[in-house]
């Protein structure tokens, strides 16, 4: 950055210094210079690892030893592995159910919060809490909340007469799956709500008034005005959430570690278990790489929508 000082007028014959200083006032050159650190960082620490990951998936690398190229062997053995297919099933179940419910609850909460009422600021702060508290830490809290003996949820449901026994949240495969989905919803609704709230505030209130005069009920107003106008934003927010949910790790790893007996593994946790706990880097990378097609599709959708808005 010191070189910028050299832009002061220099009355000699065109020197290197002068050429340098004129280059430093040239937007194209300067632009590249300013973007270079970001580009280098992303190339070295993002593009290269992505390619390295693709390569590792084709090798038998284990921790501490260089691997050899083994073609598609990792992928083939995974396709014949029942626990892998259970992981595929879990990942899609987790993503589809959680994202759908986050979308519905997020839109609902945003519509309510968009009204004027006392304590709105406080409510907004409370809504944001699950989003800002480090997920690994709130996940520890859920883990305790899902305790089979001491859970406050079980106690409350029994006292309310809704249950006659304690819920075995994490010991049963389906209970564990839905417990994880609930924790994911808790954590993810705020992103939808806060994102959509901003979109709602840009909608012209005159539109609603006109519709009310025409006799449209509140559901019709929501469906015919709110939803269409919110659609682009809704798509972007949903795509983001889909990516994060699909490629999740922390919630599942902390709360169930993929258990009971591997029944709740998703791509991220299975890959971590095979690579970090088991030392099989090649296989772990192959599992992660199975996420790529869905992720690429999501990124493309995001790209198209973001370009449209420019």
């Amino acid at each position: 950055m010191d070189a910028v000082g050299a832009t002061e007028q220099d009355f000699g014959p065109p020197s290197l210094r002068k050429r340098l200083s004129s280059a430093l006032e040239n937007p194209t050159f300067l632009g590249f210079l300013f973007v270079a650190p970001a580009e280098l960082l992303l190339l070295i620490f993002l593009a290269y690892p992505l390619l390295l990951g693709l390569w590792l998936g084709l090798t038998d690398t284990i921790v501490g030893r260089e691997g050899h190229y083994i073609g598609l062997e990792n992928y083939i053995s995974l396709v014949h592995d029942a626990s892998f297919w259970l992981t595929v099933f879990n990942t899609f179940l987790y993503t589809i159910v959680a994202v759908f419910l986050k979308l519905v609850l997020g839109v609902g909460l945003a519509v309510v919060l968009n009204r004027d009422f006392k304590g709105k600021g406080l409510m907004r702060a409370i809504v944001l809490l699950p989003w800002i508290i480090p997920t690994a830490l709130s996940a520890i809290c859920f883990w305790w909340l899902y305790d089979s003996t001491f859970s406050g949820i079980s106690w409350t449901l029994i006292k309310l007469g809704l249950m006659d026994h304690r819920i075995n949240f994490l010991g049963d495969a389906w209970n564990a799956r839905f417990s994880l989905i609930a924790a994911n919803i808790w954590r993810g609704v705020p992103f939808f709500t806060i994102g959509l709230l901003a979109g709602l505030q840009t909608i012209n209130p005159d539109l609603y008034e006109a519709a009310e005069i025409d006799g449209a009920g509140s559901w019709a107003r929501f469906r015919k005005i709110t939803l269409p106008l919110l659609m682009p934003l809704l798509t972007v927010v949903t795509v983001f959430s889909t990516i994060w949910t699909f490629a999740d790790f922390q919630l599942v790893w902390v709360i169930t570690r993929g258990g009971p007996a591997g029944a709740t593994h998703i791509f991220g946790t299975l890959s971590f278990q095979r690579a970090m706990s088991g030392g099989h880097f090649g296989e772990g990378a192959a599992i992660s790489n199975f996420m790529l097609p869905i992720l690429v599709a999501c990124v493309l959708i995001a790209f198209i929508f973001l370009r449209k808005e420019d």
Binding site: L52, G53, D248, G268, A285, V299, F303, L306
Partner: peptide, 22 residues
């Protein structure tokens, strides 16, 4: 600009194994 932004969407679960090497 959009390209830089989209890299934000690359999840850590895809990167942690190759990062280990790096």
């Amino acid at each position: 600009g959009i390209g830089i932004f989209l890299t934000y969407l690359v999840p850590p679960t895809l990167l942690f194994i190759p990062f280990y090497k790096v």
